Amino acid sequence: MTTATWNGTVVAESDDVVVVEGNAYFPRESVREDVLRPSATHTTCPWKGRASYFSLEVDGRTNPDAAWYYPEPEDAAR
């Protein structure tokens, strides 16, 4: 099982993780909803598409834009 932690707390865990360019992508359902906070940040990758972000909040501490996803990934990134 692969886990993602921040501030000493597990924020995601799954056996179905995909690693792309050194980044672990967890299935959305494996990420704890209670630690995610919406972010207005967006970036664009030429081959993955437009990324949207979440900040993490654990025990009153915030890690801005720590998690991202591609709502409509380009074909090469599917």
Score class of each variant (00 low, 15 high):
residue 58 V to W: 09
residue 35 V to A: 01
residue 64 P to D: 11
residue 48 K to D: 00
residue 47 W to D: 05
residue 18 V to W: 05
residue 44 T to A: 03
residue 23 N to E: 10
residue 50 R to S: 13
residue 63 N to F: 11
residue 16 D to Q: 11
residue 18 V to T: 13
residue 78 R to I: 01
residue 7 N to R: 03
residue 43 T to I: 00
residue 22 G to S: 08
residue 68 W to G: 00
residue 7 N to W: 00
residue 38 P to F: 13
residue 63 N to L: 08
residue 17 V to A: 15
residue 39 S to M: 09
residue 23 N to V: 14
residue 7 N to Y: 06
residue 19 V to D: 08
residue 32 R to S: 10
residue 49 G to E: 01
residue 53 Y to D: 03
residue 40 A to T: 14
residue 29 E to A: 11
residue 25 Y to G: 02
residue 13 E to Q: 15
residue 1 M to H: 12
residue 41 T to Q: 14
residue 3 T to L: 05
residue 7 N to C: 05
residue 65 D to R: 05
residue 30 S to F: 03
residue 62 T to G: 02
residue 74 E to V: 01
residue 55 S to P: 05
residue 75 D to I: 06
residue 73 P to S: 08
residue 29 E to V: 05
residue 50 R to F: 00
residue 59 D to E: 15
residue 69 Y to C: 04
residue 44 T to E: 09
residue 53 Y to G: 06
residue 40 A to M: 07
residue 58 V to M: 09
residue 4 A to R: 02
residue 56 L to I: 14
residue 6 W to H: 10
residue 6 W to Y: 14
residue 42 H to S: 10
residue 25 Y to D: 05
residue 35 V to N: 01
residue 28 R to P: 00
residue 32 R to W: 02
residue 51 A to N: 10
residue 16 D to S: 10
residue 21 E to G: 11
residue 9 T to C: 07
residue 47 W to K: 07
residue 39 S to Y: 07
residue 68 W to P: 00
residue 34 D to C: 08
residue 73 P to N: 11
residue 10 V to W: 04
residue 48 K to C: 00
residue 26 F to V: 05
residue 29 E to G: 14
residue 26 F to M: 07
residue 7 N to Q: 04
residue 62 T to L: 09
residue 45 C to F: 01
residue 71 P to A: 02
residue 67 A to L: 15
residue 52 S to Q: 11
residue 5 T to K: 08
residue 24 A to Y: 12
residue 22 G to A: 04
residue 9 T to D: 06
residue 47 W to L: 09
residue 44 T to D: 02
residue 18 V to S: 14
residue 41 T to F: 12
residue 37 R to D: 10
residue 40 A to D: 15
residue 38 P to S: 07
residue 48 K to S: 01
residue 15 D to G: 08
residue 38 P to A: 13
residue 74 E to F: 04
